[in-house]
Structures are given as structure tokens and as C-alpha cells.
């Protein structure tokens, strides 16, 4: 029988490979370690470009934003991360006490609303809240000017929303800030009475809108453009920005901060600077269909220009606090 010899063999090869890989991962001085809550498929090309341009050896850990925030909290001062690149202000807010102040000349490249007032993190790209609608059953004229009007009973059974999704909760935070607690609660109750279908995240909502399972969904704008790239122009869904503005048209940012324990502070600052450079901002505008935050970069033709979106005046700081929103969503019985 041969198996008596295979087992120890597997074991020793295992130890050997482990040790080999462990030593291969040793660090050198000109490096930068990024924890990215933004997806690899979206940001890997531009991060590679940063590495090529500067000669800095960049290492990236990709996972989702909340789980990376939890990892950072567990690691505390021993974290190997230099930069946290997060999907939303909520993720950055959760670890804000672990971040250090960013130099003013970097912060000043983006508008005031798109950065932390304490200068702990800076917005890198913008994403718009939109209403995605099925083009077979609806035209823009059928949609209300204000997201407020989806409490109308005619929308019964036709809405999809992702109550546990961070971006959705950020929009509700915007509602609380712009409308006040009571009106937000009324809106949530009203939409809930219309029996919306619940989804765990944005992608399946866009798919369900296009298939006609639902007529409208509350999502971020860029998922639609991914579907259009995969399925072509026939894809039966489009985005709509409520013309009356308000929380239904809020622009949120994905941003980044530097860990206070970072030993590569200089490289980390170079990275943020690069992400706000015209090259990187143009990349976000044309490749990931996001909104650039720096002046003078043109938006993709497929997107509604920022100037045409009736963007409410609200700062990211106001949007970073999700706790009150979650309490409200629980009280209304939308999340457990």
C-alpha cells in the first residue's frame, strides 16, 4: 500500500511550502500596504499604474469595507496597513480614531463636502443615488420628481430596495438630515406599506428591474453601466435622477485615509495625491463610471453630468453616522 508513505510526505511538503512563502513575504522599505474595500475589478488597474509610475511596491488586501474595518479594529496598532481605501464614509468613520491627519494640500483638492472635517480622510470618487427603472414598463415621465412620492399606493409591489446595504442607509441618513426624523419615518412607513421587495445588495436589484420582476429600485448609479457593458444597449433598465433633488439625488463618496501607525506615511500621501491626480480621476470617470471629485475632469458621456443633478447640500460628515439611521430602520421594522 502506498498511502502510508503519502501522508508524511504531504505534511513535510506543506511545512516547507509554508516556510518558503512566509519568508518570501518579507517587507522592504519602499512599499505601501493598502486595505481596499473597493473591489479589485474596479481599482486594481489604477493602483497598478500608481506602482508603475512611482516605483513603490504596492500590496493590496481586497475585502468588503465593513469586514476590513472590523479587521482593522481587531489589529489595532499592529495593523500592517498604511492606507484604508473604503467604499463609503461609514467605513472610514468606524476607524476614524485609527487615522492620522492628511496634509491640507491634499484635502484642498476636493470640495469641502467630500472630506472629513477633521481632515482624517478624503473623498476619491463620487457615486450618485439613483432610481433605476424598467424601460419596457415606464418612461421618465412616469417617475415622480421627488423620491418622497414613492409612498403613493400606485407603486405597490413594484419597488425593490436593499435595507441592509450601506449606500441605501446613507441615503436614509441624508433624508434624516434634510427632512428630519419624523418625515423620514413617514417615508419609510409609506414605502414599507407598498410591500417593496428586499434585496441584499444593488446588483440583484438592477437585474430584477431589467427582467421586469420589479419596476423601480433604489440603487447607486454605476451598477447599471456594468450591466450595459455586459448585455448591450438592449438591457431594459435606465437610471433616473429625481429632478426635484433632495436625498434621492445625493452624491456619496468612496474615500481613503492613512493609518496613524503607518511607517510609510510619505508613500501613503503620494498614493492619495495620485488618486486625486487628473490621470486617476479620469480613470474613475471613464472606466468605473464614477464622478470625479477634482475640477476639470470630464465625466463619461454615458453619465448625467453633475451640473444636471439637483444635488442637495449635505456634507459627508453628516452621512458618516449610520447609527441613528439603523435605529430608525429597526424601529420601523425594516431591518431586524
Amino acid at each position: 500500500m502506498r498511502s502510508k508513505r503519502t501522508l508524511p510526505w504531504v505534511f513535510f511538503v506543506g511545512i516547507f511550502l509554508t516556510l518558503g512563502l512566509a519568508t518570501a513575504c518579507g517587507s522592504s522599505s519602499d512599499t505601501l500596504t493598502i486595505y481596499s474595500g473597493r473591489s479589485e475589478s474596479l481599482v486594481d488597474p489604477i493602483i497598478k499604474q500608481f506602482g508603475d509610475a512611482t516605483g513603490i511596491k504596492v500590496k493590496v488586501k481586497y475585502a468588503n469595507t465593513p469586514q476590513l474595518a472590523a479587521t482593522l479594529q481587531e489589529e489595532g496598532s499592529k495593523t500592517p496597513a498604511d492606507v484604508f481605501f473604503a467604499q463609503d464614509p461609514g467605513g472610514l468613520g468606524a476607524v476614524e480614531d485609527m487615522l492620522q491627519a492628511i496634509p491640507q494640500e491634499i484635502l484642498d483638492q476636493v470640495p469641502n463636502w467630500a472630506r472629513s472635517p477633521e481632515g482624517k480622510w478624503v473623498g476619491i470618487s463620487g457615486r450618485a443615488r439613483v432610481i433605476v427603472y424598467n424601460t419596457d414598463n415606464l418612461t421618465e415621465e412616469d417617475l415622480p420628481d421627488d423620491i418622497r412620492d414613492f409612498t403613493d399606493p400606485k407603486w405597490k409591489g413594484r419597488i425593490g430596495w436593499p435595507p441592509s446595504n450601506a449606500s441605501f442607509q446613507t441615503m436614509v441618513t441624508a433624508m434624516r438630515s434634510l427632512w428630519g426624523e419624523e418625515k423620514t419615518r413617514q417615508w419609510l412607513d409609506g414605502v414599507k406599506a407598498n410591500k417593496p421587495k428586499e434585496f441584499p445588495k444593488n446588483t440583484p436589484i438592477v437585474a430584477a428591474v431589467a427582467s421586469g420582476e420589479i419596476d423601480v429600485g433604489f440603487v447607486n448609479h454605476y451598477y447599471l453601466h456594468r450591466f450595459l457593458a455586459e448585455e448591450g444597449e438592449d438591457f431594459a433598465a435606465r437610471n433616473y435622477h429625481p429632478t426635484a433633488g433632495g436625498p434621492g439625488s445625493v452624491i456619496m463618496v468612496a474615500g481613503a485615509g492613512i493609518l496613524s501607525t503607518s511607517e510609510n506615511r510619505g508613500n501613503a500621501e503620494k498614493f492619495l495625491d495620485f488618486m486625486l491626480s487628473p490621470v486617476a480621476q479620469q480613470y474613475f470617470a471613464s472606466q468605473t463610471f464614477e464622478y470625479p471629485l477634482v475640477e476639470g475632469v470630464t465625466v463619461s458621456q454615458l453619465l448625467t453630468p453633475l451640473s444636471e443633478i439637483n444635488q442637495p447640500s449635505i456634507s459627508m460628515k453628516e452621512l458618516a453616522d449610520l447609527e441613528g439611521t439603523q435605529k430608525l430602520l429597526r424601529d420601523v421594522g425594516i431591518i431586524p
Partner: peptide, 13 residues
């Protein structure tokens, strides 16, 4: 599902 909701949307470990 309820546990993941805590990890993924409340940042409350």
C-alpha cells in the same frame, strides 16, 4: 443572516 447584518452594516463587532 442577522449576524452578518451586524458585521456588514453596523460595524459593531
Amino acid at each position: 443572516w442577522a449576524i452578518y447584518l451586524q458585521y456588514d452594516s453596523t460595524f459593531d463587532r
